[in-house]
Design a protein around this nucleic acid. Structure first.
Lengths: 238, 238
DNA sequence: CCGGGCGGTGAATCGGCCC
DNA sequence: CGGGCCGATTCACCGCCCG
């Protein structure tokens, strides 16, 4: 078994063809939020939502961010059900979400068969204030397990709160790229030498963190450009 | 208008009789979680669930923590709808919840007419570890507003997360008592001199924080013992 | 009679905080 | 500075029941 594998294509198409047994699924689906109405959601591509209007850089847009909430829940449920099938009993799923999609993501996780185990807030110190209200500086990671009990050797205790700013400048390849230090905490939910699946690999941060922590990695990414980026980063980390 | 008022009785009965116009509703309903099955929930009172078996202290139990999730959502929706009726346009609601009830609480908030605006995590440094998993060190405050836009004079910017340990020792009166410093951040969502409603007053921490920050307070509490405790703390703070 | 699932009972886990 | 205490639950074990 190689240390890492990367598949290019649609996650819903490719997941049913995989046969590996996975210790943990860690993913960051397109959040599909950012508008309180359908019209607002329809009007924007991902780039307009996640990138400041005055940002100097020009990162590519990504697809799959234009579903309404019902079909988002359904689609994510299908992804998570396929991921569940590949996961060993006692294994875990970690799914990123923003505040607005958290309930829908929890529905999808549980509909797919996972036992919901908790929420891990991720604080991004670099975030915008809200006029006359509370700053939105956290995203959330929903944690589920395939059945009960959790299995992990040797026994570990992981933090319930993560902090870290998104990469900036030329270290930033993907619009929603995560800090490697945050991902390194998360991949430890799989035992050392275990296999981690990420059906939305993007720039490959999950895989980089997995390799750095001595875990193996299998990823799926739709875009050819990001698949190439991720391949380079994974080769360098391995 | 007095600085504070306290009503003893059932929130669902008393809320329809109130006529004051409120700037913000801040409440901490019984979470009603802590069991994955109906039987587990039915079997225990709040004290048995939330207090360690070996705890030396002896705080009184509280009621209203034995609903299944559907009726919890429905009941909380009725409470929040009555609260909505009393709130001025542009006013806010802040509702405490734990991770397991967060989606249900979000449903109730929105069903009652509130526009959901975000999640504020409250981090409690003193919390239990989870074997082979992620520590559960946060509770959550759901933020809603009565319509759009937020109105507050003068303009303020509030934090996106809160930190603080529950009171310990003889400072602790209620099982689920909140730190005053945490509540002081929250009551600032109402303008100075504004009126804050808490339909589950408990030991009265919301009111104490409101008075300390120059806001007025109206509370409802079912238990006679806690109403007395809260009255003492409020009189002292005023 | 064996195996598995469900449910009830009780001990406990690490780290912060206080004395 | 060290020891003890406590935590808005969960884990693990052990019955019982049923297939």
């Amino acid at each position: 078994m190689p240390e890492w594998t990367l598949h290019q294509g649609d996650a819903l198409t490719l997941l049913p063809t995989l046969t590996a047994t996975v210790d943990a699924v860690i993913c960051d689906p397109p959040y599909n939020s950012g508008g309180r109405t359908n019209a607002e959601r329809r009007a924007q591509g991902a780039r307009d939502k996640y990138v400041s209007g005055d940002a100097q850089h020009a990162l590519p847009d990504f697809d799959g961010d234009t579903r309404d909430q019902r079909s988002y829940t359904h689609w994510l449920g299908l992804i998570l059900a396929q991921s569940y099938r590949l996961t060993r009993p006692g294994g875990s799923a970690l799914v990123f979400t923003d505040w607005a999609q958290l309930p829908a993501t929890s529905d999808a996780l549980q509909a797919a068969g996972w036992t919901w185990r908790g929420i891990i807030p991720w604080r991004k110190p670099i975030s915008r204030p809200v006029k006359n209200g509370f700053r939105r500086e956290c995203e959330y990671i929903l944690w589920g397990s395939r059945g009960d009990p959790l299995r992990h050797a040797p026994t570990i205790y992981l933090p319930g709160w993560l902090e870290g700013s998104q990469p900036r400048g030329k270290a930033r390849v993907h619009i929603t790229q995560k800090p490697v230090d945050v991902m390194r905490q998360l991949v430890r939910i799989a035992p050392e030498g275990g296999l981690i699946l990420d059906p939305f690999t993007g720039s490959g941060t999950t895989g980089v963190a997995a390799l750095q922590e001595g875990r193996r990695f299998v990823g799926i990414e739709q875009s050819a450009a990001y698949t190439a980026d991720a391949g380079e980063r994974l080769a360098e980390a391995a």
